[in-house]
Design a binder for these strands. Sequence first.
DNA 1: TTATTTACCGACTAATGGTCTGTAACTTAC
DNA 2: GTAAGTTACAGACCATTAGTCGGTAAATAA
Lengths: 197, 197
Amino acid sequence: MPAEKTTQKARSDSARAALLKAGRKLFGKNGFLSTSVNDVAAAAGMSKSGLLHHFSSKAALFEAVFEEEEKRLVAQVAADAAEAPGAEARMKRGARALLDALNDPVSRQITLIDGPAVLGWTKWRKIEAEHGIALIQATLEEARSEGSLSSLPGAAFSRMFLSALHEGAFSIIEDKSQRPAVEAMLDQMIGGLFEQG
Amino acid sequence: MPAEKTTQKARSDSARAALLKAGRKLFGKNGFLSTSVNDVAAAAGMSKSGLLHHFSSKAALFEAVFEEEEKRLVAQVAADAAEAPGAEARMKRGARALLDALNDPVSRQITLIDGPAVLGWTKWRKIEAEHGIALIQATLEEARSEGSLSSLPGAAFSRMFLSALHEGAFSIIEDKSQRPAVEAMLDQMIGGLFEQG
DNA sequence: TTATTTACCGACTAATGGTCTGTAACTTAC
DNA sequence: GTAAGTTACAGACCATTAGTCGGTAAATAA
């Protein structure tokens, strides 16, 4: 690799990436409260001031980490679900994929535990809506255009479903034997929707 | 009111009560992060040291506030639900009562938003299980002894149901017109349980 | 080549959670 | 009733930490 003259954008980008990576690791492991700006900066090989140059505050850094994590999760779920044929099957498959993804305590800490408290309910909700909820809604739209669902349920359904899914993930983490019961419950919620559709 | 010689227990009790009241108010209004120990102590007419004499830390104070709030909510819901005849009706009635109770932003902030982040997931879960979940489970037990439910669902059901309920409350707060959809969804979850029971 | 902007550092400030020491009021032992 | 012990606080102090403020060196624009 030639010693290339580092452009500012490159430096900036790689610094940001390092900060996001370190932030994800530390926030995810120790939680927002127990992680100091200094810790994150140090883990990214930088001073606190450097970090605050890229992100205006600790909360702003967390928000960026949170949004990245949300994107990652949704992409993963969507990719897995895409393999299933038909919207109903994709819903069920996606649910299982998210149950798996939320096994990761880092993901849980960031998206479900610290998220609402740090960002505030309103912003948390907004970001969730743009990612997770949007995926569910899109799948339901597909279902309708496939003809397997006549009336599109309101946003409340997607949220309640996703919330039950989150909680199911927690239940499974505490007691793995609950997984079939959780999946059954989710399938029933989905099924009920498609029956009456 | 005669100037009674204040016993220590009386002083202590009223001080604790004042701190809990002030804590609920401030934590509920501004969130845990934005509330200082000093603020709470001052609002309770006391110094920071006084507060820390009664509660070993800021988190300990929050935990006490949280648990009190949880008790309050459950008592309120249980009292309302008790009027309905039959376990299934009590479930549906209780769900509506909680939707109403969670209209209060103070209750929401404390129990749903700050709770998990401040107490940590494990402790939050444990306290929730002792109150909210316990009420649901008890009602389901009643249903079985009434004969309207043969197989008792596992804890996962109660949690997922409660979680959907919480989320439904949020949806309604954002858009009141969603209330019927939310209630329908909850009733369906309950109904599905009793049908197959 | 000069001027400006950008990435970053070190020193400082302000706020805050928690500790330590002291004191007055209450309580228990005698 | 009084001495000894305990309890409910207050105030001073300490350590951590989020965020600000110059300053410097590298990169970019003029």
